[in-house]
Design a protein around this nucleic acid. Sequence first.
DNA 1: TGACCCATGTCAGTAGTCTGACATAGTCTG
DNA 2: CAGACTATGTCAGACTACTGACATGGGTCA
Lengths: 145, 145
Amino acid sequence: MGQDVIELDTSLGYLLKEAATALRVEMEDVLRPLGMTVTHYSCLELLAQRPGLSNSELARGAFVTRQSMNVLLQSLEREGQVVRATEAPVGKALPTTLTPLGRERLALASAAVRGVEDRMLAALSNSDRDTALRVLRSMVTSLRG
Amino acid sequence: MGQDVIELDTSLGYLLKEAATALRVEMEDVLRPLGMTVTHYSCLELLAQRPGLSNSELARGAFVTRQSMNVLLQSLEREGQVVRATEAPVGKALPTTLTPLGRERLALASAAVRGVEDRMLAALSNSDRDTALRVLRSMVTSLRG
DNA sequence: TGACCCATGTCAGTAGTCTGACATAGTCTG
DNA sequence: CAGACTATGTCAGACTACTGACATGGGTCA
């Protein structure tokens, strides 16, 4: 019977979910006063680093479906935080860029999120941090293979 | 400006979300044919290891709100996968236990999930695995403090 | 004892994301 | 060149989980 059940306390999968949930909750807490969700913030952050990303590319970067990202982008465009090209330079992908308002919103959010991430990493050595990066990348690769 | 934006490629938070998402997607893929969600599976797994957990305790263990877990438990009880005490031995907490049907469903799900977790850990040394466990625990503690 | 605080169970409404489906643009291939 | 395949954008509906709210049980303490 010891093989029939997964030991949660020592399960890397369980702990991975616990850590990701804790991070998400903390991020939601600091973003809510700004009227932003985690996906909303992720979208702006992606556009700041790689202007011109399409809806599908943003979806992959924020780990949601392109349908979900599409809904978000439509509201962000209505609110003037992003601008989408009216026609595709190639294929059907429509490049999106931040507006000054979008950059302004991002600056506030990024500062708040940085505080959370700094707190999360406070007790970690550089060595531990590097190992964790490598291990997480390995897990992602193995899962997708 | 280098300080204004969080570098996603080397951000432990971003990678944490990526890995957790990849794991969740893979688990959903193997659980969907069984008609189960990840939360559903988590609930059964928790009850197998600690029979008699209450709704709120299950919610904390599965990283959802007690309201969400309550909805799930009601449907699981209707389907005969769990049994809830009709009155509380102490306080308001109602102990929940698995039925034979629940254990049967869990056995199928647990095997499927074990396959996913094994795949995720395939490329990791024991040392890396232990470091990852320690790092993730550290993050959780720091975030909640 | 009575006021206060905290945890729990539960109902209702909302919000975010998902799956399914369809049309379109580009690429590969026999 | 024609057909197949893949990627993208978008609409619609369903589902999951969330926040808000309320009542109840138990413990604390002045």
